[in-house]
Structure formats: structure tokens, C-alpha cells
Nucleic acid binder design. Structure first.
Length: 871
RNA sequence: GCGCGCUUAGCUCAGUGGUAGAGCGCUUGCUUCACACGCAAGAAGUCACAGGUUCGAACCCUGUAGCGCGCACCA
């Protein structure tokens, strides 16, 4: 056994063990193993991604689950991989090329640009995989997948073809969300409604039949007036009823347009008159359809005005055009007023620019299996943690709309649709000469939704699908979770046709979202996201993991403070030092000694360990990782280090060899349990200590978990526990006396205990040690000489004997204590006197209160007599 | 507008019917034979507010307010 250095160096230890795990292929999943299966597919990070705290949280949880499952005897597959992330990657590489070569993607051309993206990907991509290894993730790296693996690409294409053949995928000219920056269509989910300050312009439209009379319209978008094809009012609006059917002059690109009536108009908004611009607004488009109105498009793909009829606006960028349009209207005396206005504007999730509703030819998916998808969650074939996400999920599915799946970006899965002479075919390979393939690619999520099973082959699928649990952020519940469920149910990759066999996962754990101290989301642009690698360098991967787990309440967002990671590091050091202390006292054997030779402190410790094991177990079942971490922290730091080890020093430094051996054996037994319990959270440190102590052969991942110890003699155990706790509370009381009497910590004090309980005699030495006492008198008829402060304990009356006493201060202290006891006693007595309580409360509760009253009374009497002795 | 969540010590948060808890911070005392990334003690709370249920409510129910999130609307 090598001696542990005084300072724990996580960096060296963590690298060493990760290397060994890899060398021994410890994370490899065997599809033919007879063990029960446990599987997780990683939420694939973007190929351009670098590790964020969100990833750390997410992947630490997955690693904990994977390692715990291995310990429990499961064959574990944790399948890693990456996502090509269409728009995100294309944008990142475009920026890179613009910076390095000053060229845009259009200047390269499609083929050359894609070659450059691959080049970039091979050089800079996948950094995050190495970072996950640094964190200690136990993924089966031999099975790493990429959404651009050839087989995966083919599978995605095949799914398109199948859904097309089923009539679920169709092509249509419809209103979509257009990102003028990335120049692509987006799905509804990729649009972030953002409250935005704008201006409401009141514009006059002159009536054709009554020159000089106007209809006033409130609009935020005067730059689209040229695309107006009608004005609309509510059919029941008395102000405008007689105008319906008349015509007005459109003030820009002057033409006459009709006034129509439609119930979609809200008479209370603005003037109650809406300008109908079917090409640039979803609602307007629908109104246009209802009234067979034409569509006039005045915006280009880059959101510039395309309207030669208004020369001053033609070619202007949309926001410049808005200001210019207002100016022109002003000049023409058609702008009555403007007022500030706030409304939600849709912003592109990726590019962060306002999206433009746009009429365009795109591919859409009519979602299949929505009913089944609702049912499997409602009936808990798939369980959500926390459960309240079920409602969010259900709401989305119940109001589901067709999914726009085509994207006008180059980096993505090419749509397998072919055109020739007005004919369209959906198939993977070209139907032949003269056929041209659709230029568009598929939404990245159209490939991600197959991730749960297309990452597996026939063998792994037979063993590991459906996966056991998915760990992800709630922000992608629609993007990914819901769609994966639909894909599983539709494509049935399972072993039979049942829903149980085809759902992609059984549990879904939604993590919280990590925020900064001000409650803001971590983001690159805000620069408020700490670098996890720096945190690991400072505090170790285990410290980071543990610190984060301890503050990550399930279902709640997480307010991040570096201090909390520091605590994780401190805890690692604490465990390290506890191990060092044990190591200093000879070789270990983690075998529990005979029950009869256990001290009361050992029995209390082992009982607390049992409770901890049970609590940790049930916390895991509910995915309460913060509770797991907190329970283990409290047990190791409080129960083990603060109380047991300090108490056991009596035996460890004592002359009784068998008592010493028993105490050390208990330490070994508990340390061995603690290492196993902590292993999923802090894999490196525990592996190191496990090896150093020689507690077992092989890696902790494959070691049986700690289980609760069954005491043979329950009565003796309970009695011992009561005694140990009475000692501990008496020590607390005695330390309080010391502090009250201002005895410095480094000074030993004289204590005395008046008690008629003879068993205490055997614990005198430990009591003295814990109280840092130079002497500890004990007898039933003890009468302290001189002045002494006293406190009533369950053991008896505990005295602190000192030379210098301040009787006034002591008296004050006693009075305070007496007052509190009187209050407590009065409250308890009153409660016991209340008939409703005695009649209605359970007998055990009543008994508890009786006992409590008794204790208060006894102590009160003791305190009063102490006060009286003071004079 | 609809839905979900949150409101507990200065800060960050646990606590789901029986006398309010932790870590950090603060105050005090300590380099005591594992650990100053530590040890010991202490101060500090109308558990957002108002009703209700109950012998008993931080906890269950109803409502209110504030904050956050999602969906819908958004001329």
C-alpha cells in the first residue's frame, strides 16, 4: 500500500484512472452479455460545440446513472456521438471563412463550401468529445456515432422516402418562418417570440368614392404597404360596416384595393382596420385565402424591398425601408400619428434576427402517431421526471402543426427528392439522367429524431433498445424528446410491434437550466459562462461533478456560483484526509467485526450508514441527485468524520488492542461503503482510494454496491444508539458551556457529570476527549466545589469547573435558559391539556408530547436549582 | 389570455402534517497527534400575503401579489 500524499492532486489521479479505464475497455458494452441491459444515448452535442456547464450537468448525471447501473450488475451501453447541427455549423464555418479568407459561402459555391466545412470539422470539430473524457464520462467510445455517418445519412433519407410514400410528407407553397440572415426556412419551434419595442404608424387610405375621406389603419410595418391587397374590418363593427365593399387607394405603389369584412379583426386594436398583406403575415395570408385575394411579395430572400413602383424604397433593407416609408407617408400627408408600441416579434433562434413570415415552397411533415405519443406518456410507459413536463408535452402534441422540414442551407442531409419535366420522385438515388435533386437539406432535428435507434445496429438494438433513460434539458422537449417518441412509435425499431418495445426510452429526466448569479441563462455572447475545463483544472473533475450535483435540485433552474464547486473540491479533500488518517493506523480489512465488539459509536455510525444507503437509494429512484449528494456529504463529513472518528480516537490511541482493531475495522467497513456510494459521483477519487486501500480487485464500476447491514440484536442496537446520541448531545451542551465561559479552544477544561447512570463510566474517556477536557469527574452525588456553570443533559447535570467565573454572566445565561424552558413547557402542557388534541391526535404523537413535557420539567428543575445555588 | 413553476436565514438552496435546516458569508475562539480546502461555538427566519381544512400547517385546499418559463395572440 503506497502512502497517500498530504495533498490530493485531482489532475494527476483523474487522468491516470481515465487512461486505465480506457486501456481495460471498461466502458465497452457487450450486446451478447447475459446481464440485464441498461442504456443511454447521449444527447449529441454539436460538432462545433465546446463543453459548457450545461453539458457538464447533463453528462455527469448520465455518467452517474451509467456507473451505478454497472455496479448493480447491468450491461451498460452509454452511446456517445455528435450532431452535424446544420444551421449552427454552417454559420460557424461561414464566419470562420469570412474572417480567414474574406469570402462568403456563395463565392465558394456549394461543393467547395461543403468541402471546406468537412475540412474545418476534421480540424476543429469534436473538441467536446475530449472534454467529456476529461469529465470522466464512461461512454462506449468504440460506438461513437455522427449524424453524418454514411449509414445514418442513408437512414435519414429512407425515412423521408417512407413518410413521403405514406403521404405524410408533402411539398407545398405556404407561409413559413424565414430567417433572412441564414436565408432559410425554420420550424415554428426555432422561432423565439421576444417582446420588442416598435412604433405603431397610423396611415390614411383614401376612399376611392369619396376623395378627401380616409380610412385609418394602425400598422407596425409601413414598409409592406406596397404588398397590401385589401383593408379588413370586423363585420360587426358599426363604424365601418357601410364601407365594406368599397375601394380605397393604397398609399404606396398607389392602386385601389377593396375593403373587406373578416372576423379575424379585433375592433379594439388600433383603429379596428387591418391592412391585409398576405405575403408577409400569417394571419393576413389566411384572410387572403378566405377572400381569394392576390398575393404581392415585396421582400427578397435577404429581406430587402423588391418594389420598383416605389423607387425610393426599392432595394432598401427592411428596417431602413420602414423609416423611409414613414418619411414618404409623412411627406404625402398620409401619416396621422405614431405611437410607441411593444409586441412580440419572432427572432431566429440561431441567427438572432427577426424572422420574416414568408410564402414559400417547402417540404412539410404531417406528424404521425400523435395519439399514441400522447398515450405512452399519459399512461406512463414513458415516465417524465419531474412529472409536470407531461402537461407541457401534452399541450404541444394536442395543438401540433405540420413541421416544415426543408432548409435552404447546404450543410445537412440532402432532401432525397428528384425533379424532371414537372415530375417529382422521392427516392435515395437518382432515377436517372435528366433528373435533378432538390437543392434543399433537412432540418437537423429530422435526423436527430432517429438518434435513439439509428445509432445502434441490429445486435445492440436487440439488447439495448428501448433505452433506459434519456437525460436532457427541458428546452428541447419539443425539438427532440417529443419527436423521438413519435419516431419510435412510427418506425418500430423494437423487437415486436408493441408500444413498450418501440418507445425510445422508458424514463426521461429533465435537468434544470444553469443560470448565472443574476438569473440569466449562460451564453457565449454575455460571456457569463465559466469554462468547465478551467473549473476542472482548479477543483478537479470530481469536485466539479460533486459540487454541481449538490446544488442541482431536480426540475429547478440552477443558480451557479463557483463557491459551490469549491465546496465539491473541499469535500473531496475531506474524504482524502479521512482516508489518510485511517491509513496511518495500519493495513485495512473491510470486514465487520462481531457485533458484540462494536462500540455504541460504531453501532450509531453503522445505523446512520444504513439510513443513508436507504435514503440514497430512494433519491436515485426519483432522480433527486442533489439529495443523493447531500446525504452522502452529511454522512461522510458529519457522522463519520466529526463524530465517529473523533470518538473512536479513544480506542485508536488506546491500549486495548482488540478494541482498537474493532474501531479500525469499522472505519474500513464504512470507508469501503462510502467509496462505493460515492463512486458514481466522484469516480476518479474513489477509484484511487479503493485501489490504495486494496478493498477489492478490479474497478469500482464492477463492484457490488454497498448494502445496509442487518443487526442481529435489534434491541441492543437501539439501546446503543440512544446512548451514543445522548453522549453526542451532552458533548454539544458541554462545548457550549466552554464557549460561553470563554475557554479558548486550545485550553483544556475541567468537566464533571452528576448522573446515576453507571454505563457512562465506560465512556468517560471519550466524553473527555470530545469535550477537550483535562479531567472528567463522574458520580451520582457529585457536588462541584466553587463556581461552576451547569447544563442539564439527558445524561445528567454537566458542570464546567473553572477557576475564573463570572457569576453575573452565568446567572444571566441560566435565566435565559430557564425562560426558554418555561415557554416550551407551558406550550407543551397547554397542548396536553387540550381535549381536542388528546382526543384526536394519534397515541404515538401524544406519548411523544408527554415525554417532551417530562424532559422540559426535569431540566427546568435542574436549571432552577443551579440558579439558586449561585445565590 | 391559457398553462407551468417559484417565493424559507444576508446569499444560494434543502425541507411535503408533529418544537424551522445545510453550505457560504458574518461574529468568537483555535495551527489540538487526517484535514485551515480545517476544528469548535454563536448570532441570524411573521417559512410572500389572506382565507380555509386539521387537535396541529412552511407543508394540504382556495384566493391575492411578485418573479421566472412555456404556449397562443400580437395590425
Amino acid at each position: 500500500m503506497s502512502e497517500l500524499p498530504k495533498n490530493y492532486d485531482p489532475n494527476v489521479v483523474e487522468m491516470k484512472w481515465y487512461q486505465r479505464w480506457l486501456e481495460r475497455d471498461a466502458f465497452h458494452a457487450d450486446a451478447h452479455s447475459p446481464k440485464p441491459a441498461f442504456s443511454i444515448v447521449i444527447p449529441p452535442p454539436n460538432i462545433t460545440g465546446v463543453l459548457t456547464l450545461g453539458h457538464v450537468l447533463n453528462n455527469t448525471i448520465q455518467d452517474i446513472l451509467a456507473r451505478r447501473a454497472r455496479m448493480q450488475g447491468h450491461e451498460v451501453l452509454w452511446l456517445p456521438g455528435m450532431d452535424h447541427a446544420g444551421v449552427a455549423t454552417q454559420t460557424a464555418v461561414e464566419k470562420f471563412l469570412l474572417r480567414t479568407e474574406k469570402k462568403r459561402r456563395q463565392e465558394f459555391g456549394r461543393e467547395e463550401f461543403l468541402r471546406r466545412v468537412v475540412e474545418w470539422q476534421d480540424k476543429h470539430g469534436g473538441i467536446i468529445i475530449e472534454q467529456l473524457k476529461r469529465l470522466g464520462c464512461s461512454c462506449d467510445w468504440s460506438r461513437q456515432r455522427y449524424t453524418f455517418d454514411p449509414a445514418y445519412v442513408r437512414a435519414v433519407g429512407q425515412v423521408f422516402v417512407d413518410l413521403h410514400d405514406k403521404g405524410l410528407i408533402y411539398r407545398g407553397r405556404r407561409m413559413i418562418n424565414w430567417d433572412p440572415s441564414a436565408q432559410t426556412a425554420l420550424s415554428d419551434e426555432e422561432v423565439i417570440p421576444t417582446p420588442t419595442k416598435s412604433t405603431l404608424y397610423y396611415v390614411r387610405y383614401e376612399l376611392e368614392s369619396q376623395p378627401g375621406e380616409f380610412l385609418e389603419v394602425a400598422t407596425t410595418r409601413p414598409e409592406t404597404i406596397m404588398a397590401d391587397v385589401a383593408l379588413a374590418v370586423h363585420p360587426d363593427d358599426p363604424r365601418y360596416q357601410k364601407l365594406v365593399g368599397q375601394k380605397v387607394w393604397r398609399p404606396l405603389a398607389r392602386e385601389t384595393i377593396p375593403v373587406i369584412a373578416d372576423t379575424a379583426i379585433d375592433p379594439k386594436f388600433g383603429t379596428g382596420v387591418l391592412k391585409v398583406t398576405p405575403a408577409h403575415d400569417q394571419v393576413d395570408f389566411e384572410i387572403g385565402q378566405r377572400h381569394q385575394l392576390p398575393v404581392i411579395d415585396v421582400l427578397t430572400a435577404t429581406a430587402k424591398i423588391d418594389c420598383p413602383a416605389e423607387a425610393e424604397l426599392h432595394g432598401l433593407e427592411r428596417f431602413a425601408a420602414r423609416a423611409k416609408a414613414a418619411e414618404i407617408l409623412q411627406e404625402r400627408n398620409l401619416l396621422t400619428k405614431t405611437e410607441p408600441h411593444e409586441s412580440n416579434v419572432g427572432f431566429s433562434e440561431r441567427a438572432g434576427v427577426p424572422i420574416e413570415p414568408r410564402l414559400s415552397e417547402q417540404w412539410f411533415l404531417r406528424y404521425p402517431k400523435t395519439e399514441e405519443a400522447l398515450r405512452v406518456v399519459r399512461e406512463h410507459l414513458i415516465r417524465f421526471f419531474p412529472a409536470h413536463w407531461e402537461k407541457v408535452y401534452a399541450r404541444w402534441l394536442e395543438n401540433i402543426r405540420d413541421w416544415c422540414i426543408s432548409r435552404q442551407v447546404w450543410w445537412g442531409h440532402r432532401i432525397p427528392a428528384w425533379y424532371h419535366d414537372g415530375e417529382t420522385r422521392a427516392q435515395l438515388d437518382s432515377p436517372g439522367a435528366g433528373w435533378t435533386q432538390d437543392a434543399d437539406t433537412l432540418d437537423t432535428w429530422f435526423s436527430s429524431w432517429l438518434w435513439a435507434y439509428e445509432t445502434m445496429n441490429t445486435e445492440t438494438r436487440a439488447k439495448f433498445y428501448p433505452t433506459s433513460v434519456l437525460v436532457t434539458g427541458p428546452d428541447i422537449i419539443f425539438f427532440w424528446v417529443a419527436r423521438m417518441i413519435i419516431a419510435g412509435l412510427e418506425f418500430r425499431p423494437g423487437q415486436d410491434a408493441s408500444a413498450e418495445a418501440n418507445i425510445p426510452f422508458r424514463d426521461v429526466f429533465f435537468t434544470g437550466i444553469i443560470r448565472d448569479q443574476k438569473g440569466r441563462k449562460m451564453s457565449k455572447s454575455l460571456g457569463n459562462s465559466p469554462d468547465p475545463l478551467e473549473l476542472m483544472a482548479k477543483y478537479g473533475a470530481d469536485g466539479l461533478r460533486f459540487g454541481l450535483m449538490r446544488i442541482a435540485p431536480s426540475g429547478q433552474d440552477i443558480r451557479f456560483e463557483e463557491k459551490q464547486i469549491e465546496e465539491g473540491r473541499n469535500f473531496a479533500t475531506k474524504l482524502w484526509n479521512a482516508a489518510r488518517f485511517r491509513q496511518a493506523h495500519g493495513p485495512s480489512r473491510a470486514e465487520l467485526p462481531a457485533e458484540e465488539s462494536l462500540s455504541i459509536y460504531a453501532i450509531e455510525l453503522l445505523s446512520r450508514l444504513n439510513e443513508t444507503i436507504v435514503a440514497v437509494e430512494s433519491a436515485y429512484c426519483e432522480y433527486q441527485f442533489n439529495a443523493v449528494a447531500q446525504r452522502l456529504y452529511d454522512f461522510v463529513w458529519g457522522d463519520y468524520c466529526d463524530w465517529f472518528v473523533e470518538a473512536a480516537k479513544t480506542e485508536i490511541f488506546g491500549a486495548n488492542e482488540s478494541a482498537k482493531a474493532a474501531a479500525l475495522a469499522v472505519m474500513d467497513y464504512v470507508l469501503s461503503a462510502v467509496l462505493r456510494l460515492l463512486h458514481p459521483l466522484m469516480p476518479h477519487l474513489t477509484e484511487e482510494l479503493w485501489a490504495v486501500f486494496g478493498f477489492g480487485d478490479g474497478f469500482l464500476d464492477f463492484t457490488k454496491p454497498a448494502i445496509a447491514h442487518e443487526f442481529a440484536d435489534k434491541e441492543r442496537t437501539n439501546a446503543a444508539r440512544v446512548r451514543a446520541r445522548e453522549i453526542y448531545t451532552a458533548v454539544d451542551a458541554g462545548r457550549n458551556l466552554r464557549a460561553e465561559a470563554r475557554v479558548p479552544s486550545n485550553q483544556k477544561a475541567k468537566f464533571a457529570l452528576r448522573s446515576s447512570q453507571p454505563w457512562i463510566a465506560a465512556e468517560r474517556e471519550t466524553l473527555a476527549r470530545l469535550l477537550h477536557a483535562e479531567s472528567f469527574e463522574f458520580s451520582a452525588e457529585l457536588q462541584p466545589k466553587g463556581e461552576a456553570s451547569m447544563i442539564a443533559t439527558a445524561l445528567g447535570e454537566l458542570f464546567l469547573l473553572t477557576e475564573v467565573r463570572d457569576p453575573a454572566a452565568e446567572r444571566e445565561r441560566l435565566e435565559k435558559e430557564i425562560a426558554k424552558l418555561e415557554k416550551d413547557l407551558a406550550a407543551t402542557t397547554a397542548k396536553l391539556a387540550s381535549e381536542s388534541f388528546i382526543g384526536r391526535a394519534p397515541a404515538t404523537v401524544v406519548a411523544e408530547f408527554r415525554q417532551r413535557a417530562q424532559n422540559f420539567a426535569t431540566r427546568l428543575e435542574q436549571m432552577r436549582s443551579a440558579r439558586d445555588r449561585l445565590g
